[in-house]
Design a protein around this nucleic acid. Structure first.
Lengths: 153, 153
DNA sequence: TTCAAATCATCTCATTTGCAATGACACGGG
DNA sequence: CCCGTGTCATTGCAAATGAGATGATTTGAA
């Protein structure tokens, strides 16, 4: 009995971190198809736009903290968006290290165009779930996200 | 009334695809910390190992299809794993285009070492949820993943 | 005031990534 | 038996990525 073949207890298709990753990248791809095909906007850029649609005069750092994106990624997305005329960047009056971002009229228009498509996608995905399941899913995700990041258990 | 400020209906912090992405990358980072720090294994490599622990003599293509990884990613992960002596690659007898992958003894050892850590992480994450919520979450994810990929609604 | 440490955005650089091209092989119709 | 088409794994290459460096600015303490 020393050397039984030892069947693995971990089924990758039941391993939650894996499943969540697959689901996440599936959804990202689906959404990217919408953003990029019709508006030439990457997901990173979309996140910046969406955040700016809710918050005026936000610095790069704030976006970086609130939107789960690397600092450089935010910076680059902002640069692209500025070139495209969707946002304006300007040095903050109070603290000249900060760069305040703001949607332009054109940027708001793009947001307004994308928003219903994004919501429609979310809705169509969730259509596979009952109301109750939807609520449970949201609740579960919220709880998981509330956990301390890495080291903590 | 033509031009009301139009508050955005999409709150990015309630947008499910976004939340799932954040959760996914958080979990990936946590797990990567385990795999890489202690075993010098990337997540891609781990996926290959985990799949091989369940399936003998699997081709690169099969892994690619079953494990949600790009073909080249699988190929490169396999190359690295072979160099590290964790898997063996050999041309299939029947169809010489195929490369069959198989864990070495050392690879099985690494799998056996990582498995409990991975399961422990999953467990600790899920500890934030009640049994019922855990089941609901798994069910919801399964249903979402069962949906047709992109075009289909 | 002065200066060291901290903060911010950007840039640099090495690595990773995915797509497309390549070369090896398989298979079926003629 | 050939040859065209299709499948497989790998590789080339350009773009994306993230970690750390840089330069500008602010802050706090001496």
């Amino acid at each position: 009995m020393a050397d039984a073949p030892k069947r693995p207890a971990l089924d990758i298709d039941a391993f939650l971190p894996y499943l969540i990753n697959v689901l996440a990248s599936r959804m990202s791809k689906d959404l990217a198809a919408i953003y990029e095909a019709r508006f030439n906007i990457t997901i990173a850029e979309w996140r910046v736009i969406a955040h700016l649609a809710q918050n005026r005069n936000v610095s790069v750092r704030e976006v970086h903290e609130r939107v789960d994106m690397d600092k450089s990624k935010v910076s680059r997305a902002a640069a692209t968006l500025e070139t495209a005329g969707l946002i304006e960047k300007r040095v903050a009056g109070a603290d000249k290290r900060l760069v305040e971002l703001q949607l332009t009229r054109k940027g708001r228009k793009v947001y307004a165009d994308i928003e219903p498509l994004a919501l429609a996608y979310e809705k169509s995905a969730l259509a596979a779930l009952s109301r109750k399941d939807q609520a449970a899913l949201r609740g579960a995700i919220a709880k998981l996200l509330a956990m301390p990041a890495a080291s903590g258990g």
